[in-house]
Amino acid sequence: MNQLMQSALFLLVATGAMLGLTLPFGKIAASLHISPFMWAFVISAGAGLILLGFLLAKARFLNFTAHHLRYYFIAAAVSYALPNVMVLTVIPHLGAGFTGIMYTLSPVTTLLLSVVCGLKRPNYLGITGIAVGFLGALLVAITRGETGSVAEPLWLIVALLIPVVLAVGNVYRTIDWPQNADPVELACGSHLAAALLLIVSMLFVEGSFPIGQLMAAPWMVIIQAAVSALMFTLYFQLQIVGGPVYLSQMGYVAAAIGLISGTLFMGEHYQMLTWFGALVIALGVFFTTKAQRAK
């Protein structure tokens, strides 16, 4: 098991697959009239509380230094609360599969932001990957969601901002990682902070904390919470083993799960141009991967 926890490939596939499951879960939650804020709260509160129980069982506790608190809340906002609400908001308008494709742009935007922040030096492959990835995004955006369900431009803009926000989170977590911090502790603290931010957001935006909505799908709530806890434990380990750009490639696995589940189990249909755009993005991811490995 320890060997698997040091394997970047295993961590990438496992984390991406579990992330992909949140897409059909999110669409089902929306169909049951559970608000995006509340389902994002389920993801973060479920993960945070389960991980807290794990830490306490091992007599380990969260650190509350100024650095740790800063990390918890900034990572919570840009890595979990905001992108999850964005994803869950656009899924009913664009489809789980289409929304999942936005995850595949995360490696491209992460590499671009890493170059801007001085974490990576630009090279030919990296620039090529960025250009090809954005070309693929343009092709996907032209199709505007599921076949026969053309979305308003607003939802496309929100969807295209998802990989940008994820890239900010990927880079932030790397440059501000507390020294010698435990990944499980950071995952726990960040998700508890995200849950708190989401409660405040619901009270401000919706005027209430509609937890009663969750009674529409209690078993799905439990499953989502358990999947989230495991996913984010592996997620933070992948951050250490693979770095921010490699970690961002889990979005490609998530997109595949989203497209397959959306097409096979949720009745979603997409134009050939959508699939072609996804393949072009995959080519961009290939180039960014090569750039990441280049010395």
Rank of each mutant, 00 (worst) to 15 (best):
V184K: 11
E185I: 01
L186M: 05
A187N: 12
A187G: 15
C188D: 12
C188M: 13
S190V: 03
H191F: 11
L192E: 05
L192R: 03
A193F: 02
A194W: 01
A194C: 07
L196H: 11
L196M: 11
L198T: 05
I199N: 07
I199H: 05
V200H: 03
M202R: 00
M202S: 00
L203E: 00
F204K: 06
E206I: 09
E206R: 06
E206G: 11
G207P: 14
G207T: 11
P210F: 02
P210I: 02
I211E: 02
G212L: 11
G212D: 14
G212V: 00
G212F: 01
Q213N: 08
L214R: 05
L214G: 00
L214Y: 06
L214I: 01
M215A: 15
M215H: 14
A217N: 04
A217V: 14
A217Q: 09
P218R: 02
W219H: 13
W219E: 14
V221Y: 12
I222H: 08
I222F: 13
I222L: 14
I222M: 10
I223V: 15
I223C: 12
Q224N: 14
A225K: 02
A226V: 15
A226Q: 06
V227S: 05
V227G: 05
V227N: 10
S228P: 04
S228I: 02
S228V: 03
L230V: 14
L230A: 10
M231N: 14
M231D: 05
F232T: 07
F232K: 02
F232I: 09
T233E: 10
L234N: 00
L234F: 09
L234T: 04
Y235S: 06
Q237K: 15
L238V: 09
L238G: 09
L238Y: 00
L238K: 14
I240M: 07
I240D: 13
I240V: 15
G242F: 03
G243N: 06
P244S: 03
P244I: 06
P244W: 13
P244T: 13
V245C: 09
Y246F: 15
L247C: 01
Q249A: 12
Q249M: 10
Q249I: 13
M250E: 02
M250K: 10
G251H: 01
G251F: 08
Y252F: 13
V253Q: 02
A254M: 10
A255W: 11
A255V: 02
A256G: 14
I257C: 05
I257S: 11
I257D: 09
G258Q: 10
G258Y: 05
G258D: 00
L259D: 12
L259K: 08
L259C: 08
I260S: 09
I260N: 01
S261A: 06
G262N: 08
L264A: 14
F265D: 03
M266I: 09
M266D: 05
G267L: 05
G267Q: 07
G267C: 01
G267Y: 06
E268K: 08
E268H: 08
E268R: 05
H269C: 11
H269P: 06
Y270V: 15
Y270L: 11
Q271Y: 13
Q271E: 15
Q271S: 15
Q271I: 08
Q271L: 14
M272C: 11
L273W: 10
T274K: 03
T274S: 08
W275E: 11
